[in-house]
Design a protein around this nucleic acid. Sequence first.
DNA 1: TATAAAAATGAAAATGAAAATCATTATGTT
DNA 2: AACATAATGATTTTCATTTTCATTTTTATA
Lengths: 147, 147
Amino acid sequence: MSEQKVFQEFLAEKNLRMTYQRKTILDVFLKTKTHVSPEDLYNLVKKRDSSIGQATVYRTLKLLSEAGLASEVDFGDGVMRYEHKYGQRHHDHLVCEVCGKKVEVFDPLIEELQEKLAKKHGFILTNHKMYLYGICNKCKRLQKKTR
Amino acid sequence: MSEQKVFQEFLAEKNLRMTYQRKTILDVFLKTKTHVSPEDLYNLVKKRDSSIGQATVYRTLKLLSEAGLASEVDFGDGVMRYEHKYGQRHHDHLVCEVCGKKVEVFDPLIEELQEKLAKKHGFILTNHKMYLYGICNKCKRLQKKTR
DNA sequence: TATAAAAATGAAAATGAAAATCATTATGTT
DNA sequence: AACATAATGATTTTCATTTTCATTTTTATA
Ligand SMILES: [Mn+2]
Ligand SMILES: [Mn+2]
Ligand SMILES: [Zn+2]
Ligand SMILES: [Zn+2]
């Protein structure tokens, strides 16, 4: 099923309306590749239609998250970011603290152990956030040279 | 070594001064049990000495983090929190999305796999954040009753 | 199709945590 | 003491996000 269709059904379910603005924002969002902030997206949306307001972009990103089309990514720099979720496998993030490089990573065993760990404490796990911070290969090499 | 001593040495190392305010803020921080926000701590500090300003509390918490005495905890609710780090084993957090209950958890195997996962991508892991969100036992039972 | 009800929008203002500013005060060093 | 440096607290600023609210758009109903 297409993302537009998923959104449509999500909205119908909640008695919300598929408006021109929401359609446009989803469309522009789907064209992005990396992790976009609401402001990033707002700027892209403005290019297509400058009458769309940023409050609507914020509101729509919330809806896209609820609909399972976007997921929030919080690198801890004070700005929320969003990435595609629909049809994407879940993954976590590895971030270089020097150059900011982001790598999407996935380890099925870690995922399984997270589940078990939660269960062990009587919890049903619904979701999780995992961010690994380190120094990437390139920055490692540069540091050696400088030393 | 005592926390006060650790802080003292950290400050000396950085050519910073151990002031009455810093001493007081560390002291009050060490008396806390759970995850405190800067504002929480500011309110506690005010009780001891109402002349201490909140900017100093923010600044000192930053220093305590650098000194390895406190660690930042970000539950994603827009407020940073701090917890004791000195002499504490590293742990991650399991959070109930219904009642907000927080459990401190640790799985050595997960930690090891995080290390390996980073290495696999050419990174040297320096730290990580892991938050598990779910529904606790108590809230699970309450939900069943209501249904 | 007209009409009423409900939802959505955009501009602007409000919010709130955190950081920055800056005049004043405290501390350490010759 | 005299000077240099660091720290402080009141205040202002910043900036992402949320809220407000008058207006517009969409949908349901007559
Ligand atoms: Mn994951
Ligand atoms: Mn951890
Ligand atoms: Zn790097
Ligand atoms: Zn609970």
